[in-house]
């Protein structure tokens, strides 16, 4: 019988992702965010999520991370981003919280309106809403929760706020 190995911190954390949410705390740093994003991508692949599902989740995750680090924490490395995610067989769920003052998603102009088409902002949130089945913010607007059901369209379940 094989001796039971003591899992490294990383293994323990990955394992937590299967049955209960994995919790990760990172400083406002693009490299750290990238590392977590790659970890999540590996977890999705390990659970055999489809390529289009992974594409959409990665894109939504990228936008949410940039929002948290750049807009929320203003690139201040002393401020953290708290991430909790879970890859289940049928659904992927993630919560990303920054230490910023938050924002009101209602205030973000529609980037597809002709007068806004050439403006810089609002597309990240729009892509998150398109690719995930649910995107919601807490009252303060500094924590986003996103949910993606696997391999089927979100259909009538889609909640955009």
């Amino acid at each position: 019988m094989m001796p039971t190995a003591i899992p490294s911190a990383k293994e323990a954390r990955t394992e937590a992702g299967q049955d209960s949410p994995a919790h990760v705390l990172i400083p406002s740093d693009a490299g750290e965010a990238r590392r977590v994003q790659e970890e999540i991508e590996q977890a999705l692949k390990a659970s055999a999520y489809s390529e289009p599902d992974i594409f959409g989740i990665k894109l939504a995750l990228e936008e949410a991370m940039v929002n948290a680090i750049k807009h929320g924490n203003q690139l201040d490395r002393s401020k953290n981003v708290r991430i909790a995610y879970q890859v289940r067989a049928d659904v992927f769920e993630i919560t990303i919280a920054d230490e910023g003052s938050g924002f009101d998603p209602e205030d973000v102009p529609d980037p597809t309106a002709p007068e806004n088409l050439e403006r810089c902002c609002g597309r990240g949130l729009m892509l998150m809403r398109h690719y995930m089945c649910e995107v919601s913010y807490n009252r303060r607007g500094n924590t986003v929760r996103m949910l993606k059901k696997r391999k089927k369209s979100c259909g009538d379940d889609k909640v955009t706020r």
Binding site: F55, K58, L59, E62, E63, V66, E118, C120, R123, L127
Partner: peptide, 16 residues
């Protein structure tokens, strides 16, 4: 293979 909204912003500026 991947492109984020920040990259789209650069394309818009280039177009302008």
């Amino acid at each position: 293979e991947y492109l984020s909204s920040a990259a789209l912003g650069k394309l818009i500026t280039l177009n302008k």
